[in-house]
Design a protein around this nucleic acid. Sequence first.
DNA 1: TTGATAGGCAAGCCGCTACTTGCATATCGT
DNA 2: ACGATATGCAAGTAGCGGCTTGCCTATCAA
Lengths: 109, 109
Amino acid sequence: MGEDVFKALADLTRRRILDELAERDGRALAEICAWLMTKHGLRLSRQAISQHLAVLREAGLVVVRMDGKQRVYALRPEPLTKVDQWLEPYRMFWSKRLDALEQHLEENP
Amino acid sequence: MGEDVFKALADLTRRRILDELAERDGRALAEICAWLMTKHGLRLSRQAISQHLAVLREAGLVVVRMDGKQRVYALRPEPLTKVDQWLEPYRMFWSKRLDALEQHLEENP
DNA sequence: TTGATAGGCAAGCCGCTACTTGCATATCGT
DNA sequence: ACGATATGCAAGTAGCGGCTTGCCTATCAA
């Protein structure tokens, strides 16, 4: 737990898993697998996805709930605030350019 | 160019370099090195930092300007908007509480 | 109980990545 | 022109990360 969130997000498949959980939270491994296959055409073994989920769990981005013989994965977006906070000082940079653009358009209609 | 921004951000040292450039933009390699050493106690060779900067350049997060025998690196935060955009759907999760608080305050002034 | 379903654990493979070392190149000062 | 400064390029290494395969466990259904 508490592993680097940025590293967890570095992998596209893991981001897709999070996206999937953001849309429909509380899904079993098999469901996530099937969804990745159909939507993104990924051909990954069940274990591959399972290991990705383990990484997400390490980063605290996901929690598991036992439900019968299924393990239901649920999104836990709190660690993403660290990314959001890190991003914060940079936001002024691209808002500055937008401001400059706006001003330019106002002065040159 | 156009390499994965998320992968570029996965490394702590690279994030620190960006942070440094965000504070004081347009710095030479030697300056960045010295700063990382003193502030974070890192013991990395000049080449290591140089390679990190190459990765950041690949990701479009940094541009280089030749200035005499120095190469001045400048921040280019635009690619970070991709991270910001990806983060967007998740913001509602942690802003829900703030929204609820606001609504409560509006209804109970 | 037996079989089928759902998934974790462990070991191995391979490519990528962070880092180092050594060499080459270009610019500035003298 | 020469040495010092500032940096890139190339090759090599060690380790990590993503993936597969094989085996084991646990739960449900008949």
